[in-house]
Simulated scan of single mutants.
Amino acid sequence: MGLHRTRARGVVRGAVRGVARGRGGTQPGTGAGADAEGDAGVDAGTDAGADAGAAADVVGDRTWAGEVRAAVFCALTLFVLVLIVDGANTTLTWPRAALWAGLSAVLYVVLHPARVTAGPGWLAVRRLLRTRRVCTGLLTAVRLDGGVAARLVLRDSLGNRVELDPKVLTDNPLLLHRLDRGARDAQARGLLRTGVTVLHRFTDRADAEAARAVFEASGLTPGLTGESARDS
């Protein structure tokens, strides 16, 4: 009788241990499951960090959003004004309203500014229908076309070509810095041989404006420092 009881207790203990092991293997966050979840979390965090770093490396035109709003305002103003004039003359009809809407849309397309962005080794100009990009480290020519609206033309060794308003660079020192860094790399490789002085003029002008802003913020006058500033 004692032997049977001992065997029964052994069987019960074995069953309890088996159940406990089964529960431990299926619990989330333990064993191989925890390792897999941890690896997945690390991979996801790494990918997110890489994406955030890549986005942080891209700089853009800080005045672009304001110019877009101005273009929308001009187009809407034209549309409203012609509707008011037509309505006052009792000549407003659906076909005429569609015509004014089309003209306003054309005005917006004309006024819509190109968006200039730059990252490590590249500069892109995006318009409504197309985006062009050059590799700044492979630039072969930089040319400033004068005229009614000055345009800065960039070409690289891959045959890519972009045009942009030079004012975008003067208004955005970070964009100019990215372009200048890539141009220096291209010049060191012996690729950029024409247009170096053009970029130097832009960088010198940007440095002068930055220095003037520092003097104005500190209450000094450019050219007056030290004893001269105190005497004034």
Score class of each variant (00 low, 15 high):
residue 184 R to L: 10
residue 3 L to K: 06
residue 78 L to T: 11
residue 31 G to A: 10
residue 217 A to H: 09
residue 36 A to W: 00
residue 134 V to Q: 00
residue 23 R to D: 12
residue 43 D to Q: 02
residue 99 L to F: 11
residue 135 C to Q: 11
residue 51 D to Y: 11
residue 146 G to C: 02
residue 11 V to K: 12
residue 43 D to A: 02
residue 105 A to W: 08
residue 159 G to L: 03
residue 186 A to R: 05
residue 41 G to R: 01
residue 165 D to H: 05
residue 116 V to K: 02
residue 37 E to C: 01
residue 168 V to I: 13
residue 85 V to T: 08
residue 34 A to S: 13
residue 14 G to M: 07
residue 207 D to I: 01
residue 144 L to V: 04
residue 126 R to Y: 05
residue 74 C to R: 15
residue 118 A to T: 07
residue 36 A to P: 02
residue 23 R to G: 05
residue 193 R to E: 04
residue 16 V to K: 06
residue 72 V to F: 11
residue 122 W to P: 00
residue 19 V to N: 06
residue 105 A to T: 12
residue 12 V to P: 00
residue 179 L to W: 08
residue 116 V to G: 00
residue 16 V to M: 11
residue 73 F to N: 10
residue 7 R to H: 12
residue 66 G to Y: 10
residue 44 A to L: 02
residue 160 N to L: 02
residue 155 R to W: 12
residue 113 P to Q: 07
residue 38 G to L: 01
residue 29 G to R: 08
residue 211 A to D: 15
residue 223 G to H: 03
residue 186 A to M: 09
residue 122 W to V: 05
residue 116 V to I: 13
residue 132 R to D: 15
residue 102 G to Y: 06
residue 130 R to L: 12
residue 59 V to M: 06
residue 136 T to E: 03
residue 116 V to W: 03
residue 120 P to L: 04
residue 5 R to F: 13
residue 108 Y to W: 15
residue 99 L to W: 11
residue 84 I to L: 15
residue 16 V to R: 10
residue 50 A to W: 07
residue 172 N to K: 08
residue 52 A to P: 03
residue 107 L to C: 13
residue 153 V to S: 02
residue 204 D to P: 00
residue 63 T to W: 10
residue 156 D to L: 07
residue 181 R to P: 00
residue 213 A to M: 01
residue 96 R to N: 09
residue 21 R to F: 07
residue 4 H to T: 11
residue 60 G to V: 12
residue 17 R to M: 09
residue 202 F to G: 03
residue 17 R to N: 12
residue 231 D to Q: 10
residue 164 L to C: 12
residue 5 R to T: 15
residue 170 T to D: 15
residue 70 A to K: 13
residue 166 P to H: 06
residue 27 Q to P: 00
residue 133 R to M: 09
residue 165 D to T: 09
residue 149 A to C: 01
residue 123 L to T: 03
residue 206 A to Q: 11
residue 104 S to D: 07
residue 121 G to P: 01
residue 187 Q to L: 00
residue 185 D to L: 14
